[in-house]
């Protein structure tokens, strides 16, 4: 564990807490894409299958349970909780996110580090996570103005993988044979997809107004 990875995990944790805070306290998911949340639930479900077979550390297992629990409860809130579901913008959240799942699965079957069930699904979760934010970014474009909590959620979610890139650079120089091209490229693509959002986020943030 290094400071970059810890910062990345804490940023990721903060993003899900901000979203849970928004949904649970003000009972609103306005501006949040249910489709992105569904994709993230699949990402964690396919990435953390090894939670029962390989124990890395208490921290690792605890965080996996937090991410699994939060992603599925956010989907449940947005789908079935009356008050929250009412604030879901169904008409605008129309990105065909299931069209992202199949190509990621095919790509994982073609490009992976080891051809085993767990490893292929783990690789699939990497590819899917790289594009999972797309429905949310499209919804953002359509709803133009979003509240600060949603903006902070997206900012933290984009930032965590950026910190992971610093972690991979650090590990590459400090650990021999630490080379994971698939993870690195997927992480880079994922972070670059936020570039546009980060630009406007900083512009508005500096301007002191909401994110438009």
């Amino acid at each position: 564990m290094n400071i970059f990875r810890l910062a990345g995990d804490m940023t990721h944790l903060a993003s899900v807490l901000v979203l849970l805070l928004k949904i649970h306290t003000i009972k609103s998911c306005a501006g949040v894409s249910l489709r992105t949340q569904e994709l993230y639930a699949i990402v964690f479900a396919t990435r953390y299958l090894d939670i029962f077979t390989s124990f890395v550390s208490v921290y690792n297992t605890f965080m996996k349970l937090v991410f699994l629990g939060s992603s599925f409860s956010i989907v449940w809130y947005m789908r079935y909780h009356k008050a929250v579901h009412r604030t879901y913008d169904r008409e605008q959240d129309t990105f065909r996110h299931w069209f992202l799942v199949l190509p990621c699965l095919v790509l994982a079957l073609l490009i992976h580090e080891k051809f085993t069930f767990l490893e292929v699904l783990w690789t699939f979760s990497l590819y899917l996570e790289a594009v999972a934010i797309l429905p949310q970014l499209v919804l953002l474009q359509r709803t133009r103005n979003i509240d600060n909590l949603t903006g902070q959620y997206i900012f933290l979610l984009g930032g965590y993988r950026g910190l992971y890139i610093l972690n991979w650079i650090y590990r590459y120089f400090t650990e021999p044979h630490f080379v994971h091209w698939i993870t690195w490229i997927a992480g880079l693509v994922q972070t670059l997809l936020y570039a546009d959002f980060f630009y406007y986020y900083f512009l508005r943030f500096i301007g002191g107004r909401g994110v438009e």
Partner: peptide, 10 residues
């Protein structure tokens, strides 16, 4: 289990 394939990252 060979370390290279046990994923220690989240």
């Amino acid at each position: 289990q060979d370390q290279s394939h046990s994923h220690d990252e989240l």
